[in-house]
Structures are given as C-alpha cells and as structure tokens.
Design a protein around this nucleic acid. Structure first.
Lengths: 224, 224
DNA sequence: ATAATAGTGTCTATTAGACAATATCCT
DNA sequence: AGGATATTGTCTAATAGACACTATTAT
C-alpha cells in the first residue's frame, strides 16, 4: 500500500540474457525457479537497489548467481507489462551478455530453439538434453527479442567475437554466425566480408590438435 | 525510508523524446522546468503508476502534457545512473516519438544541435529562436542517443514517414532525411532507393500552391 | 596417396552514388 | 518565354554471393 506522501512504486529488476554458442547451437543460461514459487526456468536476475546504478546491479547478479564475467554486455530493452510477474508489479531491464562457452563451465545452459523463422515478433523455446524446458514469466518473448538483436547486430558490429576466445579461426567465427542466424553460410564470401571489415588481424600462429590442415588463428584488432 | 518488509525502491518514470522536423531542422519538444525545482529544459515525462503498463504511461504523459498523438513511438533505452536526478533516485524509460510538425502547433519545439559529427557517444545541444537552452538532467546525452537511433534506423525502416503527413512529395522525404542525417543527399539516387524499397506508392495526385512544377504525392503502401 | 579442410581467384547480380539530360508547370 | 523544380537515363564504384580451383597437413 502507498504511504501517505508517495505513490506505490513498482519494483525494478535487471534480468540477464547470458548467451553462448555450443556445438553450433545458440544457448542461454537459465536458472530453475524453486518450487512453490514461479514454476519454470528463467533468466538470472535481481532487484535494483536504491543506491546502485543499473550496470552495478548487472555485475552483482553476475557474481552472485553466475560467477563469471561476460566479454560483452549491453542493455536490450525494458519490460513492464502488468501481469508479467503474477506476484507483484516488476519492471525488468533486460541486458544481453555474451560469453565464450568455455567460461560457462557447469552452468545450466539451455539450447535456444527458434520457432518462428521469418515472422516478426517471435517467441522462442528452450530445451536441455533434448527435453523442453518451460520458460517462466515473459522470458520466451524476451528471448525472441534477444535473438532479433543478435541477428541484427551480427554483421556490422563486433559482438560475434565476444562469443569466441581471444584467438580463433575463421571457421569458428562462421560457426558462431551460423548458429545465431540459423542458416548455413558460404565460406569464401564469409571470409572476405570478415577480412574486408578490417576488424580482425592474423596472428601468424595456427591451431593445433585438429585432424587435417590447421587454420590460422586471428584476433580482434586492438584500436590504435 | 524502507519499510520493514521491503527495500526502498527507485522511482520509475517514462520520458518522451518527441521529435519532428521543421524547416530542415531536427527539433524536439521540451518543457521548461518550474523555478526553484530543477533548472533547465527537459523532455516531458511522468512517473509510472503501479497499475499502469509502460505504454499506458506514455499515452498518459502525451495527453496530459502534450495533447497530441504521435504517429509512431518506440522504446529507446532506460537510464538509471545514480545522480541523474539530484532530488531522488529515478530510473527513466525513454521513448522516442515521431510527429509531423503540423500536429505540434504552439508547442515548445527546440532545435537539436548535433555537435559531435562522427564521434561516438555524443551529447547534443538545443536552441530556440537562436538562443541556447540549458538541458536538465542527463537529457543532452539521451538526446544524443535519440539522434543515433534515428540515424541508424532511417534507411531500413519506415520511421522517416512518421514525420510526414499522410501524403508527401519525394522532396519532402529527402528534406526529412537530410535533417536527421545532417548532410545533403543527391536527389536521383535518393529517389531510386526510396522507390526501389517498395514502401511507398504514387497517388496520381500532385501538390498544389507551390511555385513552379508540382511534384507527385506519394503515400506509404498499406500492407495487404 | 588420400581425405579433409584451409585458403584464393574469378565471375555475376545487386546496390549505391555521381552526373547529365529531359519534362513539366507556374509566373 | 523563362525559371525553377520534377523526373528519367546512363554510367561507374562498391558490395555480396556463387562457384571452381589450389594449397596444406595428418593419417
């Protein structure tokens, strides 16, 4: 109930869409809601404290609930529909965070199943080990927006490299792009476009351990 | 102060960047803050009520403070730095709204002066009748983001048409684009690109009243 | 030698931009 | 008729995509 001198305020939360690519599949880190509460899987999140900047809330949720630092994060959008959390009015500021899969060891990574392909305003499903996971709140729709943002920014921004280790082969970059776009790409044009962008430079070193011809390792060009 | 069973909550507001183009200048609707309060000019805004969806807050602010309905509005971003409102912690969800200048009669429209040209993260200045207006809060930086969003979406989305009346000439479209991009465009390539997009259709009617040859009127193609 | 992948060369289709020429309408 | 703008035509540069080919390495 509102006090005398102020209106009741909504709660404000940050929710994190922590994305990675594993074996050619776009994946998101989800947490299982405790029983008796909201059922289903949800993006990790937390309330924004009164003395805490939004990015600090993001960092706190990362260290409290995830235990890792993403390479890149950016604000996606804010969701404030009335019934989105049935317990109370919560406005969620959603951040998109990107990590290479290596640094997310042991976390609950759910494969993101895009089931709209071409339509607009799409939702998304999630599965883990082949089983469908129920998504809590409006997180299926939010993840649809996440995928749209990723696809939109993929080839004119360096976000794809945030999903890769410091040094990577061109094939690995292509696998990331194919996973996000959900379609295969031709190798030669992809290589050119990438190299013509001028965002990456060859290191002169080569991958090891693989069968057959090793590919050169590249890294993101440091801004001079 | 927080009550026993909950933390203190930030306030949540919506702020509106209501943009238009007048005589080739990108303009924004601002309100003058009352004296004794925050000094300077600010975007119109209001607090989000506990039982009100974000878009409903936007509509309420529009009817209370502006008295007009924009052709198009979309969420831009959410700003929550700690000191942005010196009176209390306020998190602002900023919406970008677009209107043709004809429907904003008599409002306080300030010309947006872009003073960064090419750099990243830019702020913006405002002037009215040639005099510089002081911008309150972090609204100079927010308006920088507004301009960036406008420029980025201009030529692959129909937002430019939201600044025009229902029927318009190709020259008028070009003037809108030049105002937003801040640079002149060549007429023939601009015409083709626009027509090849397939988003507008000729009406067969022509403008009247102007000196010299009248141009054909176009309108946005209705989706079938 | 062979298999499998890395990397290159060439061609074509599409698109964006520059520039010149023509068409049309008002005064 | 003349002036200003609308509209069209042609050319060029840059880009994206398809496809064939060569190069390199582990087995």
């Amino acid at each position: 109930m509102p006090t005398l001198d102020e209106y009741a305020k909504p709660s404000v939360a940050v929710d994190l869409a922590i994305m990675t690519v594993i074996d050619g599949d776009l994946c998101v880190l989800l947490v299982n809601r405790p029983e008796g509460d909201i059922v289903g899987w949800a993006m990790p999140g937390g309330f924004v404290h009164i003395d805490e900047a939004l990015e600090d809330s993001v960092q706190r949720v990362l260290s409290e609930k995830v235990g890792t630092k993403p390479i890149h994060f950016e604000q996606l959008a804010t969701y404030g529909a009335l019934g989105r959390d049935p317990r109370s009015r919560v406005i969620s500021i959603v951040y998109l965070a990107l990590c290479p899969s290596e640094v997310l060891g042991g976390a609950n990574l759910a494969k993101v199943i895009i089931d709209w392909e071409g339509e607009v305003g799409g939702r998304v499903a999630a599965q883990m080990n082949g089983a469908r996971l129920p998504l809590a709140f409006d997180h299926a729709a939010i993840l649809g927006d996440v995928v749209k943002r990723l696809r939109g920014k993929l080839d004119y921004s360096p976000i794809g490299f945030a999903l890769l280790p410091k040094r990577f082969t061109l094939r690995e970059v292509q696998e990331i792009h194919e996973a996000i776009l959900g379609k295969p790409l031709k190798k030669p044009p992809f290589r050119r476009k990438l190299l013509d962008r001028g965002m990456i430079v060859p290191t002169g070193e080569f991958e090891t351990g693989g069968a057959y011809r090793p590919a050169e390792l590249y890294e993101v060009k440091s801004k001079e």
